[in-house]
Amino acid sequence: MSEPVDRARAALVAAPVDLLVGRVATLLEREYGSTDIELFQVDYRLAALIPLGGGEEVRAPGHPAWRCFDHQSPVYADGTGYLPVSMRGERRGVLRVARVADEGQLAGLSEIATALAHELAAVDPGTDVYRVARRSRRLTLAAEVQWELLPGRSRSRPSFSLAGQLEPAYAVRGDSFDWSDDGDRVWAATINGMGEGVTASMLTTLATCALRNARRAGISLADQAALADQAIYDLHGGEQYVATLLLELNLRSGLLTAVDAGSPRLVLLRRGEVSVQRLEEQFPLGMFEGTHYREQHIRLEPHDRLFMISDGVLEATGQNVRYGETALDRMLRRTTPMSPLDAVRSILGDLRAFVAGDLTDDAVVVCLDWFGPQADQKLRPA
């Protein structure tokens, strides 16, 4: 690692939470002679790159900043460098650095942009500076609750890649997702609390926290569902409930365990072919007291792709026509060469185009790729 990168890391660690980009700019001007440093954060909808310092949003797909964000690689254009601000698969945005002497400087600048991404993730829970700046409009209160609850929007390591997205991004109500991994397994869930507005978001919050609490106790997927079911029933007595799809993937073997508690659709994309996985439909969480949940198992092959898709996708309506299975299957096939984040972004972008605006119902799409046992498993003890 070069000395400028080391100094940038030290400057970022020492910087006040609101001055991360300013301290990077000072160092880049001193070390590289670069000027006009700006952080463009991707907005909640994945549709705009918004400058932290204010100014015009970048929306044109062919812009160098978007090419950098989409391909996750540095772009050099007209003496300006665009560097991905990403960490562990979570794409936060793009760092623009003007007056870059040549493309040979991009490698060191990329390391600094990655260090910035790590520091942004570290300070984000304690400041509103970066959250506020990445909004192209105000979030509803229900949406604020939902976004605060998410584990992130994308995640990757050698054995898997994972991404999810909510719509309508600035007004989502009850649909959400959750995930976690420990190097041997990855868990994923889609969670849809019934109702509207804050009522739905609070129900989803209870379900998410109950599922996390059960998962962290180290119990089986079926028992996780049962404990969350009981927590919701104890509070609401069956009057409110949550449709949930729970998955647990063994990253060594590819064995997928699933519990379908009222969630509509799990789709497998294998070698370009789409197949809906028929799961046993069980009661939503909290509908009845003492529900017993059963697990199902599916054997994945390396490079399989899974989609978890809420009913708001299929039931979206434009000009009195439902989006439906045909349009969804077509879009799923088109995502084959895309990363999971680009896949969910494309599906929901197509959905917005279909309805010609914001969705009237919530929609959530989660995409999970399993690449097979990789280095991160081989280095762990059996």
Score class of each variant (00 low, 15 high):
174 G>P: 13
314 L>D: 13
101 A>R: 09
154 S>D: 04
354 F>C: 04
344 V>F: 06
229 D>E: 14
102 D>K: 02
19 L>D: 14
310 S>D: 13
87 M>V: 13
42 V>I: 14
89 G>Y: 10
138 R>Y: 07
198 V>Q: 09
40 F>Q: 00
46 L>Y: 03
312 G>E: 10
82 Y>D: 03
194 M>A: 14
337 P>D: 10
237 G>I: 02
84 P>D: 12
27 L>R: 12
294 R>G: 06
25 A>M: 05
259 V>D: 12
289 E>Y: 06
90 E>Y: 04
239 E>R: 15
355 V>R: 05
338 M>P: 00
221 L>S: 08
274 V>I: 08
18 D>V: 09
188 A>T: 11
260 D>M: 10
142 A>V: 12
235 L>C: 13
179 W>V: 11
312 G>L: 04
333 R>W: 07
119 E>Q: 06
125 P>I: 04
146 Q>T: 03
59 R>W: 00
40 F>C: 00
257 T>M: 05
135 R>S: 11
116 L>Y: 00
314 L>N: 14
313 V>A: 07
63 H>Q: 01
76 Y>V: 06
90 E>C: 03
13 V>T: 14
1 M>E: 04
46 L>P: 00
29 E>L: 08
257 T>W: 10
29 E>A: 11
225 A>T: 03
240 Q>R: 15
121 A>P: 00
17 V>L: 09
104 G>Y: 01
265 R>N: 08
42 V>P: 03
294 R>E: 14
273 E>W: 01
5 V>C: 06
101 A>L: 05
156 S>Y: 04
319 Q>D: 15
62 G>A: 09
238 G>L: 06
169 A>T: 03
186 V>T: 15
223 D>E: 15
353 A>Y: 05
203 L>E: 05
79 G>N: 10
39 L>R: 01
318 G>D: 04
158 P>E: 01
308 M>G: 09
295 E>K: 13
282 Q>W: 09
157 R>G: 12
115 A>I: 06
33 G>W: 02
194 M>D: 05
136 S>G: 05
266 L>C: 15
159 S>V: 03
124 D>T: 12
155 R>G: 01
173 R>I: 01
252 R>H: 10
360 T>Y: 12
88 R>K: 14
354 F>Q: 06
225 A>Y: 06
49 L>M: 05
76 Y>R: 09
108 G>A: 13
111 E>H: 01
1 M>W: 01
86 S>G: 07
324 G>D: 10
